[in-house]
């Protein structure tokens, strides 16, 4: 059982820049947790602190109850996969994987056995003698993963491992990595700024912003029930409209919707897929652009006061630029003072 516990960890860089601010997280045994956030949100710094490459300014990091906060990377039971693969190009694939085992003074036959097993696991059986430059980007990333897995770490750390790969390969590799992680039941912390990766792979997602946690939840909850306007806007596409609530109704840009919250300013949030459109002579919005994605269409709509929203439609051919339409949201959420105050 390998449990990672991060308690009130902060990191200040010289000059006073606060990269991570009092961050806490418990990762259960065998769980895959994604740290998701925009650039500069502190997710990579946090991962590097768990890996031992950055020293926390304050706080505590434990693995299975053992304090590893200030241990150097070489003494931690973690394995990290880097964004740039970081393979040792002067060694072949086998030597890349065997290096850590040799340092642990593992016997030659055991090294061969372990390396071949892990190469088989990542689908690179028979690639041991290849030079790393003879491999494709995807294969190099598999070698990097295998190099970490061969040492059987308690915690696997993945730092945007697919960032340098093309979309198709990225989708394939994330399925493979998820399969391997579930097969080995290895506790994993995964950093990404790609919401698709986080939504498709994670048991839980930690949405980070400015070194702080915005929300920690299951992917479906983060998507359907965002707790802050930042999460609402960052995960998936969301129409966010600043407006005013008076007598239980939200008013802005020609929209007037029931919103049973107290009077005052509020942000209305509507997913494009929860927005029905109907053609009307004097509608609330004008179609700006229609994009056909094959499986569905996305209609950009201009509301008064220069506000633009998106709606997802099944039949994009029914709409064209300049048409007047009415909007009927099936589900909305409302935010005030940075927190969710209503969800239908």
């Amino acid at each position: 059982m390998s449990v990672l516990k991060i308690s009130s960890v902060s990191k200040y860089f010289p000059g006073g820049t606060k990269a991570v601010d009092s961050f806490s997280l418990d990762v259960a045994d065998g769980e895959l947790v994604c740290l998701l956030g925009p650039s500069g949100s502190g997710k990579s710094t946090l991962l590097r602190m768990v890996g031992g490459f950055e020293d926390p300014s304050s706080g505590l990091i434990t693995i299975d109850g053992e304090d590893i906060t200030h241990l150097p990377p070489e003494r931690r039971p973690t394995g990290m996969v880097f964004q740039s693969h970081a393979l040792w190009t002067h060694m072949n694939v086998f030597d890349n994987l065997a290096f850590g085992l040799k340092l642990r003074r593992t016997g030659k036959s055991e090294i061969r056995e372990k390396v071949e097993a892990v190469l088989d696991l990542v689908g690179l059986a028979g690639y041991g003698e290849r030079k790393t430059h003879q491999l494709s980007g995807g294969q190099q990333q598999r070698v990097a993963l295998a190099r970490s897995l061969v040492l059987e770490p308690k915690i696997l750390l993945l730092d945007e491992p697919f960032a340098s790969l093309d979309q198709h390969l990225r989708e394939r590799l994330r399925e493979e990595v998820r399969d391997i992680q579930q097969r080995l039941k290895i506790t994993t912390l995964f950093v990404t700024h790609g919401q698709d990766e986080a939504l498709s792979m994670a048991d839980r997602i930690v949405v980070m912003r400015d070194g702080r946690t915005e929300q920690i939840d299951r992917p479906d909850v983060v998507y359907r029930n965002p707790q802050t306007p930042f999460v609402a806007g960052f995960i998936g596409t969301m129409n966010l409209i600043d407006g005013e609530v008076a007598h239980g109704r939200f008013h802005r840009a020609g929209l007037s919707l029931d919103l049973p919250i107290s009077d005052g300013p509020a942000i209305l949030a509507m997913r494009p897929e929860a927005l029905d459109l109907s053609l009307a002579d004097q509608g609330q919005a004008v179609v700006h652009r229609v994009t056909d994605y094959g499986t569905h269409g996305l209609v950009d709509l201009d509301l008064p006061e220069a506000i633009r929203v998106k709606a997802m439609v099944d039949h994009p051919d029914r709409f064209s630029t300049g048409q007047s339409v009415n909007l009927a949201p099936r589900a909305v959420a409302a935010f005030r003072d940075g927190r969710q105050v209503f969800r239908s």
Binding site: G51, F53, E74, M80, S84, A86, W88, G100, S148, L151
Partner: peptide
């Protein structure tokens, strides 16, 4: 690169 050094430290070097 720093990453190759860090990768070596990560495996125990």
């Amino acid at each position: 690169s720093n990453a190759t050094i860090e990768a070596a430290r990560d495996v125990g070097a």
